[in-house]
Design a protein around this nucleic acid. Sequence first.
DNA 1: TCTATATTACTGACGCGTCAGTTATTTGTA
DNA 2: TACAAATAACTGACGCGTCAGTAATATAGA
Lengths: 228, 228
Amino acid sequence: MASPLSSQEPRWRRLPEERPGQILNAALAVFGERGLAASRLEDIAKRAGLSKGTIYLYFPNKEELFREVVRHTVITQLEEGERIVSENATSATSATETLTEFMQRYWTFIRSAQFAPIFRLIHAEIHNFPDLARFYGEEVVARGHRLISGIIARGVESGEFRQIDPAVAARMLSAHFVMHGLWCTHRECFTSIAKKSDEQVLDELMQFYLYAIRPCDANQRERGTVTL
Amino acid sequence: MASPLSSQEPRWRRLPEERPGQILNAALAVFGERGLAASRLEDIAKRAGLSKGTIYLYFPNKEELFREVVRHTVITQLEEGERIVSENATSATSATETLTEFMQRYWTFIRSAQFAPIFRLIHAEIHNFPDLARFYGEEVVARGHRLISGIIARGVESGEFRQIDPAVAARMLSAHFVMHGLWCTHRECFTSIAKKSDEQVLDELMQFYLYAIRPCDANQRERGTVTL
DNA sequence: TCTATATTACTGACGCGTCAGTTATTTGTA
DNA sequence: TACAAATAACTGACGCGTCAGTAATATAGA
């Protein structure tokens, strides 16, 4: 794997700035695969190209490392998400266009390497870390739903979407995306999507959802333009 | 909790027939709370009102116990589900009625004490137990989706539902229900459903989904009859 | 040379799995 | 019916491996 160490190269390099991030990434990967209890600090260290002791220079213990992994990952994703959304806010497009673009972004987020492990971890440890659970519920789920329902509400007002409770519609969208994301992460197990690409699945999600929130007449019109 | 033992009552009773089931139930509860690795056999034993050694009279080791917990729970639920569906098959009702009734049953299943823990466990251990993952994917998810798409297909044919790929529609239904089931299990964390009852959530699910699969004209008509 | 950074070797707690021993129940015998 | 012997069911303390956390040692880099 690695080239044989020339005697010149140091066995390791001092990189105190980069260590926390490296450790957090490695930890997310290992925690995500094995779960908190079954993950060994030594495996995390190996994955980060370090020794176990080094982890303890940056994190007080396994539990705090776990907390930081969740917080760090979630916050990183959140900022990334917010950046994306604010980019889009500049162009004053229709609610449908905004929503479509949002769904595309949302799907890439859901299908990113971080989402599935974090989701699993949070749901697995929700009993043991109520503080993280609350943090996740408030800062991620609720915040995300608020973002979506904002778009929906605008569409309802403009008549692009039917009279529907935006909060409900937001939950439905989220449920679709999260669940399909999880299934796609384990394609090999779930035959119904085994042969479909991420793009195909997204397409199905968008079509289904848009039909579900559009008023009857809009769907009528849409039907005319699309050939089955 | 327990009444003080009268000197007559034995410290324990021989119940070889009932033991496996008791152990499996206790194990599901503990595994579901703590996860596989963090669960101690002694806690499971205590919960079942037994000592640790007794577990080893019925199961070879922790891992096999886990396998059996998943298989047993899943199969039990599956049989229950099938019983319910076959009951309903006798009455020749409309696809909409069948679907509505199915959704009600499905929701009670999803909201049962067993569903959330099993879901968490399978998703947490999917990497470590590929055999269970395949079993779950084939025998539960795929089978369930086939059941649903059968109902949908009938509705499409009869014109009750719009022209939609029944397999896709089945997945969407499932995604809605599973995800909302998980959220409802942790109401305290998810503010958007914190104040809603299970019945309200089901109602929202049904209304949203039915709109999404009905043809435009049916939704038009429906709109007339329902006051918002 | 000095010290912050990293490694390696170690310790102790914890929990799985075992098994010698205990208790409930059944069966045989009077 | 009564009680002893046999058996099946169950218990809980202990051995042994594993791993989080720590102490002692090494090395990069100023």
